[in-house]
Design a protein around this nucleic acid. Sequence first.
DNA 1: TGACGTATGTTACAAGTGTAACGTATGTGT
DNA 2: ACACATACGTTACACTTGTAACATACGTCA
Lengths: 123, 123
Amino acid sequence: MTQPSKSELTILKVLWTEAPLSAREIQEKVGPQLKWSFSTTRTTLSRMAEKSLLRLDTKHGVRVYTPVESKARTLSGVMREFFDTVLEMKGPLPTAAFHDSKMLSEEEWAELDLYLNESHDDD
Amino acid sequence: MTQPSKSELTILKVLWTEAPLSAREIQEKVGPQLKWSFSTTRTTLSRMAEKSLLRLDTKHGVRVYTPVESKARTLSGVMREFFDTVLEMKGPLPTAAFHDSKMLSEEEWAELDLYLNESHDDD
DNA sequence: TGACGTATGTTACAAGTGTAACGTATGTGT
DNA sequence: ACACATACGTTACACTTGTAACATACGTCA
């Protein structure tokens, strides 16, 4: 599974909170923050769909985007990669240390813990 | 300060252990691991020097490379970036949780802690 | 039905990164 | 002085990412 880039992650965060959303709606949320033109947002969304980071549906005649993987799933991959390559921590990670990041709820942290301590070569 | 890419980080890790080293010596260490040709290693080294990740000197008529920033300095930047963008943890970070990563000694962790809890917009 | 706004498709271009070959210079041994 | 190995400089090419414009299609209102 391809890891999202920083910009892609920004978009995913919006969609994890509220999905599906149209390109227009996503632009309203991330455009000002990233200082992107609508065009740029759309290009990034297309690429994310190509890479299967997002699923594409049509609602009321408009294309809407939904994340393919859950927040916990995606972030566990990103975190695993980071700890492996940067800190060379291959084994179980001390995820409890991050539980005050507002990024995830307690349940999501629990889910993430599961993924992180999985057999580790299954996605 | 530009963050090192994953490959660049591999080279830096070697040089933090033992520097300065020539391109040939670096190749002997990272070539097999990264499965790089000597050419590739040299290109990457040049780019790292351009970006001021490495300093270039001449010893006994050969070019040798030395990291510009300490391991603690560099990793603090990488970690800060990661926690900011991925987990949105802006404040002080629970670095104690990582102290069993063999990447840094106790002294280096102490140095890293300092950087991480610095005013945060000074490099 | 024609104009206008919005949605969608296509194309572009520069920087960064992975990956490497080609050509040239220079030191060392014979 | 020449050949050979090694070092060094230059160039190449594809892929990803950031960033965006241009063009076309389609629905709605007048």
